[in-house]
């Protein structure tokens, strides 16, 4: 299929991008890597008037170290994320999850920021951003603002990005201390979206689990934290039994959908099993 006709704008700076979005008419779409948007346009599920392509905005690409946080440009591709030494050192969970996104070709084009802004509940990276307490840096006509991941994802395919706003970069606090991470993804075939996935980061201290952060993929219209499990793990023994016990509450507060691959109750079950596995692996058990 062929997309419906549209106007095409290719800014080279964030300011130009914001301006292009403002001038793009009623129905403007921002294109990052295009790996979801182009198929959606080909299927004519979306037929924007204007497409603003961020592909040449160099300042939105790359990873930099800002002391206590990494700053990842929204247009940094998945392939770049996977091989980035800073991410490998300070935010390995992102790299591990990104490796599971789609396939090699898609990872060459798809971007970290695009995946977050798309806010697909089955996408892998929103739950990771949520688990890591990432901060979204957003540019708009009235300047920049920063939104925590916990407030960024609003609904199915919907974020707090207002009309005219562009996600520019993502600040990811470095994990300090003895953290282990694991992205546990469950799908039927290799290149498919997650049926359910669990992003876990676990800090161990003296044979105990001091802190656990757990993000859930595809357990509701937005990514979610497994808060009850996190609470149960805080201070728990680093033992398989304790982890299994805590994981039983992983689906609390979730509202997963039912589709071909899984009905809601099965997703709830998977969330528990995958949380147990992710936490156990992250805790080195």
């Amino acid at each position: 299929m062929i997309p419906a006709a549209f106007e095409y704008v290719r800014p080279t700076t964030v300011d130009e991008a914001v301006q292009a979005v403002a001038e793009g008419g009623e129905d403007v779409k921002i294109m990052a890597g295009g790996q979801s948007l182009i198929p959606v346009m080909r299927l004519r599920l979306a037929a924007p008037e204007t497409v603003v392509d961020l592909g040449r905005v160099a300042e939105m690409r790359g990873v930099r170290d800002e002391g206590d946080a990494l700053v990842i440009g929204a247009m940094t591709t998945h392939a770049e994320v996977v091989t980035d030494p800073l991410i490998a050192q300070h935010a390995k969970l992102i790299a591990e999850a990104t490796e599971t996104v789609a396939d090699r070709q898609t990872r060459r084009r798809g971007t970290f920021g695009g995946a977050l802004a798309h806010a697909d509940p089955a996408g892998d990276l929103p739950a990771v951003a949520l688990a890591l307490d990432a901060q979204m840096v957003i540019a708009g006509p009235s300047g920049r603002r920063t939104v925590p991941a916990s407030e960024f994802f609003v609904d199915y395919l919907t974020t707090t990005l207002d009309e005219g706003e562009v996600l520019v970069e993502i600040r990811v606090p470095k994990l300090a201390g003895d953290w282990g991470v694991r992205y546990e993804k469950f799908n039927r075939v290799a290149q498919a979206w997650s049926i359910v996935a669990v992003a876990a980061a676990v800090r161990r201290e003296n044979g105990h689990i001091a802190e656990a952060r757990i993000g859930l993929t595809n357990m509701g219209p937005t990514p979610l934290r497994a808060s009850a499990t996190e609470a149960a793990l805080a201070g728990a023994a680093a033992s398989p039994d304790a982890v299994a016990q805590a994981a039983r509450s992983a689906a609390e507060g979730t509202s997963p959908s039912s589709d071909l691959n899984a009905q809601a109750d099965y997703r709830e079950h998977l969330a528990q099993v995958l949380t147990r596995r992710a936490v156990a692996t992250a805790a080195g058990l």
């Binding site: 095409y8 290719r10 295009g34 080909r42 592909g55 060459r108």
Partner: peptide
């Protein structure tokens, strides 16, 4: 539809010619 774009494999059905 895989081709190499600047040396990297991409799916040319998911890239616009203008890109």
């Amino acid at each position: 539809c895989t081709v190499h774009l600047d040396g990297q494999a991409v799916k040319s059905c998911t890239v616009l010619a203008v890109q």
